[in-house]
Design a protein around this nucleic acid. Structure first.
Lengths: 329, 329
DNA sequence: TTGTAAGCGTTATCAT
DNA sequence: ATGATAACGCTTACAA
């Protein structure tokens, strides 16, 4: 069922039907009414491909994520598609599996089919990204790329909150277990740590490719460094830390405090994890809005606030000697 | 850059270029070579909208999931889009947030834009689903819907493996903590339990809307029922159980054994969870293949095998009195 | 083997 | 306010 069917039914021309349906020209109230009526009755649905051919607008957007298995990105995907649906645009999804080459490939193959991209924490270099985009509107989420609209979170600020909280409860030796070294996220978080902690006092463990495993693997070194608190690259890493610490019978937070990063629903509830919340839903929604309703110019970049959520994996620092005795005695 | 540009460049007709590019007609080896060459050089990419208009094929598929935050579905989404990309088809994604109405809505709005649907554990009724599909090819994953190609897993068989394993290690009182009551998944798993356990011996707790929270909340009742082992609706539920048991100082698996369901990567590594693995990647891949390369007739339904993975949350049943003393003494 | 021409469903420009 | 017509880029009979 096409606009021609409606036109024939009503004895008007297809152009009139088109104008009535798309509200894009002068139509008498009566005919508009009639057109909408029979459109409804006939079950008409506009053919997007045809519409795209004449207008150039695709009414769809490309959502590119590094890894859907990461709950952080899964949530962004969920929120982004939800918002896009509200705005009557379909979402093509592509998971790049963290591979820059795949990323560039999917961008190339999707570029012509979409009105723009929402790029989550892309892995390719700034220049390659710009080339692959080649003028296609794009909003970058959770990474800063020069020349593009970016929506990021104040990760360094979140790190500061975490460390200030730990210091306020008596911790002096605070370790950071880092994640993958390449991502913007990773460097930002590390930078936040380095901003807060004097070079002499820093205990940095990592980088680790696998978030959870990295946490597990880092525990021995954290203990060896006699840290009383650890801030993790993300919640999964924190979970790994807690799991391993528990296995070694080191009590959290009695012997050691652990702070996660991201504020994932699953993670927080799973271990009552103290964590720095990163506003994912808001970022996803803003990205889609910016792409679809605004003009995503480089100047429109925004930095969302982060927020430390204190739960039960952090507590007062133990007396240092006591902890040490505990562990070896 | 269109086929006309290539045609002009080479002094041939657009149709020849089209034939050469789509391998859909007789073209001399020489011209085909030439066409591909300049196509490459000019950076030609076929306009899918235009192609769709003449062929009717969209080269895209709709992937409908209940909730991307559930790692089970996130993984399916990842695997499905990966396979689809190999087959040169784009993937529209829609997260229905478990809402049957939203589900039917997105099906209606996507139906014309896709060659078919991969529907993951849909929440609508059989009849509504069929109506909304209205002839659009579809493969249903993890639910059985009469009249459609379905890819499911042998959940009852997995449940049997779990219970047999527990029995073999001395457990007699085996509880089941169920999940949401409405889904096919949920009823299948429960059915598996009921198949294995005599009515008199059954300890069923739930249903629970939220997987993890359900596990947490179920613990007191599990203990009150003096079960020595629990099979959970899924891994998240199992994690909830373990978390709460640990908090109550009930040792897993010393005092009580816990079996998860799904075999999620995160979950298994997180708690070394014994779990019934459900082949997600295979299901996703098969669904896409069936949709894109085969004919998804009702007869092509397949049931994938499940597999109990024994890790460290299960162990021999404790002496019943000893456990009881432990808990209250 | 290649070219011509019609058609896919919509929008947009221009008359009327 | 409405209608005819061209155009979007591609595929596909059909003709050469």
């Amino acid at each position: 069922v096409t606009i021609h069917d409606i036109a024939r039914e009503l004895g008007v021309s297809p152009s009139t039907v088109s104008r009535a349906l798309s509200e894009s020209g002068p139509v008498s109230a009566a005919t508009r009414q009639a057109v909408h009526g029979t459109a409804q009755r006939l079950g008409y649905e506009t053919n997007r491909a045809a519409r795209s051919m004449s207008t150039g607008r695709m009414h769809s957007l490309g959502l590119i994520v590094p890894d859907l298995r990461d709950p952080f990105f899964a949530e962004i995907a969920k929120d982004a598609q939800s918002r896009a649906r509200d705005l009557d645009t379909a979402v093509y999804i592509a998971d790049t599996d963290q591979d820059p080459v795949t990323e560039l490939d999917v961008m190339a193959s999707m570029r012509r089919e979409v009105d723009g991209f929402v790029m989550c924490a892309p892995r390719s270099g700034d220049a390659e990204l710009a080339t692959a985009l080649d003028g296609t509107p794009a909003v970058v989420v959770h990474r800063r790329v020069p020349g593009f609209a970016c929506i990021t979170a104040d990760l360094a600020g979140g790190m500061r909150q975490a460390i200030e909280h730990l210091r306020a409860t008596g911790h002096r030796r605070i370790a950071y277990v880092s994640g993958p070294s390449e991502s913007w996220n990773a460097t930002e978080r590390l930078r936040g740590y380095e901003l807060e902690v004097d070079p002499a006092d820093r205990i940095v463990i990592g980088p680790n490719a696998e978030a959870f495993e990295g946490g597990v693997a880092a525990v021995e070194r954290v203990l060896a460094a006699t840290a009383t608190a650890v801030v993790a690259y993300n919640d999964l890493t924190a979970l790994g830390l807690v799991a391993r610490l528990t296995a070694l019978d080191v009590k959290v937070p009695h012997d050691i405090s652990v702070v996660g990063f991201d504020g994932l629903d699953v993670a927080s509830v799973a271990r009552s994890l103290t964590s720095v919340d990163v506003p994912r839903a808001q970022a996803a929604r803003m990205a889609v809005d910016l792409l679809l309703r605004g003009e995503p110019t480089p100047e429109t970049s925004v930095v969302l606030p982060t927020q430390l959520i204190v739960r039960s994996t952090t507590g007062p620092a133990p007396d240092h000697r006591a902890v040490h005795a505990d562990r070896h005695g």
